[in-house]
């Protein structure tokens, strides 16, 4: 099996486009560019990328979805957070090729019909940002957190956002924003 289909590109031939297709034995892609299809905010995107391309680079450099930020690039700061199959993950440390067949939500999909998502709105109301660079990652992480913990205590909020860093130190505003967003989302509006 080893050594079969290792040449670049050719093996891509659609095999990896959806996870729904069973992978045949010896299914190896790359190291050159291969076709990859990602479902982002409900829409399919096709791209041709090497297996080493991370999800954050696919989003930002190949699809022009620049909401998620690349900051530490080492699964620590949280600025690149996206939601994959309902779970928050670091897109800097997820390969785009492994994200195939997953339902990916990014900050770009948060506002609906021109109306801010309750989490984004609560961040505005509580001045929960300063320079703003960590904000998209935080907003996505907060949505992921509130989807799992709709009625959190302040302590839950602190623990639940342990995967994101704000170097401006706007945590006080953020905690208030999260609690307000939780209330808003429990009300069922725009959630």
């Amino acid at each position: 099996m080893r050594g079969v289909g290792i040449s670049t590109g050719a093996v891509g031939s659609g095999i990896l486009e959806t996870a729904a297709l069973a992978a045949p034995a010896g299914n190896v892609a790359g190291p050159g560019a291969v076709p990859v299809t990602l479902k982002i905010n409900g829409k399919p995107y096709s791209l041709n990328i090497e297996p080493r391309v991370t999800l954050i680079d696919a989003l930002r450099n190949h699809l022009d979805l620049t909401g998620a930020k690349k900051v530490c690039d080492r699964a620590t700061c949280g600025a690149c957070t996206v939601i994959m199959d309902g779970k928050v993950v670091y897109s800097c440390t997820t390969l785009a090729i492994e994200a195939q067949g997953k339902d990916i939500q990014t900050i770009e999909g948060f506002s609906q019909n021109g109306k801010l998502h309750p989490v984004s709105a609560a961040f505005v109301n509580h001045d929960a940002q300063q320079c703003g660079y960590c904000t998209p990652g935080f907003v996505v992480a907060v949505k992921g957190f509130l989807d799992k913990h709709p009625n959190p205590t302040e302590q839950d909020v602190e623990a639940g956002l342990g995967g994101n860093l704000c170097r401006c130190g706007t945590y006080v505003g953020m905690r208030k924003a999260v609690l307000e967003a939780a209330k808003e989302m429990r009300g069922g509006r725009n959630a």
Binding site: A23, A25, N27, P31, R52
Partner: peptide, 12 residues
């Protein structure tokens, strides 16, 4: 660069 394999069975 590296090649990426996505097996579905342990033996594979």
């Amino acid at each position: 660069p590296f090649e990426y394999a996505n097996p579905t069975t342990l033996q594979e």
